[in-house]
């Protein structure tokens, strides 16, 4: 790994990503010794709740033999007394060997990383980046499709606010994937993201209808369209309804098409998809652990040198 901090998928090179995925695959096959990182402590600073991300990081460090230090709920933290994030991370740096940060403001991880020397992992900053989600998404794709080269990926749902989607798109660009973005017009990619993708030479197309591309896809990545993005209930129902898939939708898909979703889902993937060979979203959720283990293993090993 050439970076001590993991702030965004954009800042990871293709080689960095491959290093993490290769290590995750090794860990999946042969779990590392339980005392591999016996002396390492991972600080979990969650300024907004995210139970699963929290649990999977905690699981990952414990499976590596280390332990987690939890800041606890933000209501009981110094932040409520007005302490700056810059101060909080500088204090926590003294307790731990690495730090995981989840924060509601965009750019929080970048800023915090400028104040600490221990590796900092961004576990989500507002509508910004969530690189470890991207790593586990890529890992799932690679395991399911066999390779990340020459993929055609459809990404559907809320592309405007969905940070998962933006991080994923940056990463897929590094693997030169063909990307099809499917969304209602009001939830299409934000200008800054589209700009970046074009700048980095992404092969992307935007659509309002999944039918236009479903037959070509190796991967269909579905995200949730949230009620609060719409001024009224009827509009939401009507639009969200057009971006739901079920087993019948997938009859047009290639047999090997991999369906993914960052979970939790509400009803954007009907339960009848679960039994099809396309469903990979639970595997995807489980992959959070080996991928986060791999990342921590690499960052902490570098630290020990």
């Amino acid at each position: 790994m050439s970076h001590d901090h993991v702030i965004s998928a954009k800042s990871l090179s293709r080689a960095d990503i491959e290093t993490v995925l290769d290590r995750a695959a090794e860990i999946d096959r042969t779990p590392p010794d339980r005392d591999r990182h016996a002396d390492d402590l991972l600080a979990l600073c969650f300024f907004e709740p995210s139970t699963r991300t929290h649990m999977s990081f905690e699981t990952a460090i414990k499976r590596l033999g280390g332990d987690a230090l939890d800041m606890g709920p933000v209501e009981s933290s110094s932040a409520t007394k007005g302490e700056s994030l810059a101060d909080t991370v500088r204090v926590v740096e003294g307790y731990a060997d690495a730090l995981v940060l989840r924060h509601p403001s965009e750019g929080a991880a970048q800023m915090a990383s400028e104040f600490v020397d221990i590796p900092l992992i961004n576990a989500g900053d507002g509508a910004g980046q969530h690189p470890t989600q991207t790593l586990l998404d890529l890992y799932t794709m690679r395991e399911a499709a066999g390779s990340l080269s020459d993929l055609t990926v459809g990404i559907m749902g809320d592309l405007k606010y969905g940070r998962t989607v933006h991080s994923l798109a940056y990463a897929l660009t590094k693997f030169d994937a063909r990307q099809h973005f499917v969304s209602p017009e009001s939830l299409s990619l934000p200008r800054s993201v589209r700009y970046d993708l074009h700048e980095s030479g992404a092969r992307l197309k935007e659509h309002t209808d999944l039918d236009a591309v479903i037959e070509e896809l190796d991967v269909l990545y579905v995200t949730r369209i949230q009620r609060e993005r719409f001024p009224d209930e009827n509009e939401y129902r009507q639009i969200a309804g057009e971006y739901r898939i079920d087993a019948a939708t997938l009859e047009d898909a290639r047999e090997e098409c991999v369906v993914m979703h960052p979970l939790p889902r509400v009803d954007e993937i009907a339960p009848d998809v679960d039994a099809t060979q396309h469903a990979h979203y639970f595997e995807q959720a489980h992959n959070a652990v080996p991928v986060r283990m791999a990342l921590l293993d690499l960052l902490l090993a570098e630290d020990d040198r």
Partner: peptide
């Protein structure tokens, strides 16, 4: 927010981009 950092923007051909949140 009330943090001890100055803003930083990358200069693009036709604008600037926040180096923290990416806004152009």
């Amino acid at each position: 927010e009330d943090e001890p950092v100055a803003t930083r923007f990358e200069v693009l051909d036709d604008g600037v981009r926040c180096l923290y949140c990416g806004t152009i």
